[in-house]
Write a protein that binds this DNA or RNA. Structure first.
Lengths: 172, 172
DNA sequence: GCAATATGGCAGTGATGTTGACTTATATGC
DNA sequence: GCATATAAGTCAACATCACTGCCATATTGC
């Protein structure tokens, strides 16, 4: 057995520890995203549609450019997905009140129902993991992921006060 | 301000908390995977190539079916990616010693160099997040992600003793 | 009026995944 | 030894999701 596990918690950055973290991210994210696919496939939708439904549901009457800023994809990529969601009646577009060039996005009743169904699938997965891991682990989970997010992610996460700005407890 | 944050840690499963976790996973995973792309693009490679390089590097002389079992993609999807990696000299194929139908996969010297470069990019991202979040947070991060992984993920993670089997401290 | 902005659209391309059917080489059971 | 199973590779066809580049339309702001 090469080099025993360090008991000193300050030495946790060995390559094996890092690789384990990488693999956990890969398998964990895969397990987390597996759920909604079975709901989306029969409707002819994919992950991109899910992301749009999610963020539009969470930010009613958001503009197209706001959504583009969150998803960080091109206008054309979003356009196709959005057009399908509007055509099938899951998303509503209305001109902005102050600026009529804008198209404000919101979920229709059907869109809300679908988003709720997708949310429920992932809620159960995540809630179960939270319960098994414990509240303290959840706090660490959130703090590490927040640090992994880029500046755009931080801007979004901090802009939605519901979330805790993960200041490090007892930070040096 | 609707419904104040519960001080009781047993009530952390409200919808807002769950949605925050979903968003953290999305933005955190995106930030984590952003690094290697700039290295891979000039070589004509993508994320699929990265995953193959990663797991072959980590499991030298693994068989094609073992890799298929880890990645959970079809033989055809893997085949295309693998063929390109072999053609460009990053991955070596050798017949198995006991079963000559098998093709055992390993990284060439160039493959190891490339994998190391990709690893370094993500190691820095992850190590920085670990440092900022603290050792205790890292433990929670790992435990939640482990619970999110599916059975295939668990089988892989537990099969590589380097990782800690995330038994819950003080579990009920 | 005119430049900038918000949005939508078209054409083409590429990476990644899928299904289904088929081939080749080798191993194994009887 | 021969039938069958298995490991791997291959081909055709297709879907999703992203990209670039270019252009059109409506509206705003100066």
């Amino acid at each position: 057995m090469p080099e025993p596990r360090p008991s000193n918690p300050l030495l946790f950055l060995r390559e094996e520890e890092i690789r384990q973290g990488m693999e956990l991210l890969y398998f964990g994210y895969r397990g987390f995203t597996a759920g909604p696919d079975s709901v989306l496939r029969p409707l002819g939708f994919g992950r991109a549609h899910h992301r749009v439904l999610y963020f539009v549901g969470r930010n009613p009457n958001m503009t197209v450019s706001a959504l583009l800023g969150i998803l960080r994809i091109t206008k054309q990529s979003l356009s196709r997905v959005l057009k399908e969601l509007v055509a099938k009646g899951f998303v509503l577009q209305r001109p902005g009140t102050t600026d009529r060039r804008q198209r404000c996005l919101a979920l229709s009743a059907a869109g809300e129902a679908l988003e709720k169904q997708l949310f429920e699938a992932q809620r159960q997965t995540l809630a179960r993991a939270y319960r098994e891991a414990g509240a303290q682990a959840v706090e660490g989970f959130r703090r590490v992921l927040f640090m992994l997010a880029d500046v755009d992610g931080h801007a979004y996460l901090l802009g939605h006060g519901a979330g805790a700005p993960p200041a490090r407890r007892g930070a040096r």
